[in-house]
């Protein structure tokens, strides 16, 4: 869905020298050495054919009079909730192009999409401080969903859980699977913080794994749980063996950025491969050579066929 540029609203009109709305775009001339926020309300089809839409990304078409007029931030809101923030930008295209900004996690759209664009004017002339917006838009998609619950006994040390989920999304989303962080819970279970995983063999679990995976508060039958522990016994980065009907994996505190996605890949039915370009490498996700690691077509088919990837 798109909206035309001349629908844009300026947050701080006092920072603006002039606004010209024409059929083709809105031209804003900012006062020297000012910043501002420009807001676009995007018409939002929340439910289409009984299916709630998911927010994939937003787009802007704009051009700048000079490098002294730039877009510095793009924030995406669904109603009052900010669902994406791209900061630290410095975009001053000289011609109308097409800039896309990802919305991580592809969240359900609930209330209507707004795009808030942070801008900076640092030139000395009106020509230098000109920005022109022709349109803004949002792509909606329907993706299969992995609902991931995070249960933390010990937080990971090398990468944050957010970084691990972002890593997982970077492999899953291009292949049509969104990863929804459905919940987070801290578990105070010191004796399971070093959890016995035995041989970590699919279909076989230890008593400690059964005890740990019994913690499924607020978890649906087809939701998967990642238990973040200090360590496993014996030492592994993670282990996807889980009791029947309690899908999930453990992730050790020293795991790599990709271990979470790798272990959940096992939970979804994937096996190891001997290829360090791929998420399911058996040679260690610390050795992935071309991030983000790939999933191949047959793996995507396996994931589609899993009951744990939920149709939209």
């Amino acid at each position: 869905m798109w909206t035309h540029g001349h629908t844009m609203r300026v947050e701080y009109p006092a920072h603006i020298m002039s606004t010209w709305r024409a059929g083709f775009f809105v031209r804003i001339v900012g006062k020297p050495n000012t910043t501002n926020w420009f807001h676009f309300a995007v018409p939002t089809p929340v439910i289409v054919k009984d299916k709630r839409q998911m927010t994939d990304s937003v787009m802007l078409r704009f051009r700048a009079g000079s490098d002294f007029a730039s877009v510095t931030n793009v924030h995406v809101y669904d109603g009052e909730n900010r669902i994406a923030a791209h900061d630290g930008l410095d975009l001053s295209p000289s011609a109308f192009g097409f800039s896309r900004f990802d919305v991580p996690g592809k969240p359900d759209v609930l209330w209507g999409i707004g795009i808030s664009v942070g801008v900076r004017f640092s030139g000395s002339t009106a020509a230098q401080n000109t920005l022109e917006f022709s349109s803004a838009g949002c792509d909606f998609k329907l993706l299969e969903t992995v609902r991931l619950h995070v249960k933390v006994l010990t937080a990971p040390t090398r990468f944050t859980i957010d970084e691990m989920i972002a890593g997982m999304r970077s492999s899953y989303e291009p292949n049509g699977f969104r990863v929804v962080r459905a919940g987070t819970e801290n578990l105070n279970l010191p004796t399971l913080n070093v959890v016995d995983v035995g041989g970590c063999t699919r279909g076989e679990t230890t008593q400690e794994q059964r005890d740990l995976f019994g913690n499924r508060n607020n978890v649906g039958a087809n939701d998967v749980v990642a238990y973040f522990v200090q360590a496993t016994n014996p030492p592994l980065n993670g282990c996807a063996a889980h009791p029947g009907g309690r899908p999930g994996a453990v992730v050790a505190s020293g795991a790599s950025r990709w271990t979470l996605g790798h272990e959940i890949g096992h939970v979804l039915g994937l096996n190891h491969v001997n290829d360090n370009n791929r998420l399911m490498t058996g040679n260690g996700t610390d050795n992935i050579t071309n991030p983000p690691p790939d999933l191949i077509a047959s793996e995507v088919t396996t994931m589609h066929n899993s009951a744990l990837t939920i149709d939209p």
């Binding site: 014996p234 592994l236 980065n237 993670g238 282990c239 271990t259 272990e263 058996g282 040679n283 260690g284």
Partner: peptide, 13 residues
Amino acid sequence: RRLLGSDEPDYPA
């Protein structure tokens, strides 16, 4: 190093 670099080393192997 390669064998132990795996996320889940096969210790029996």
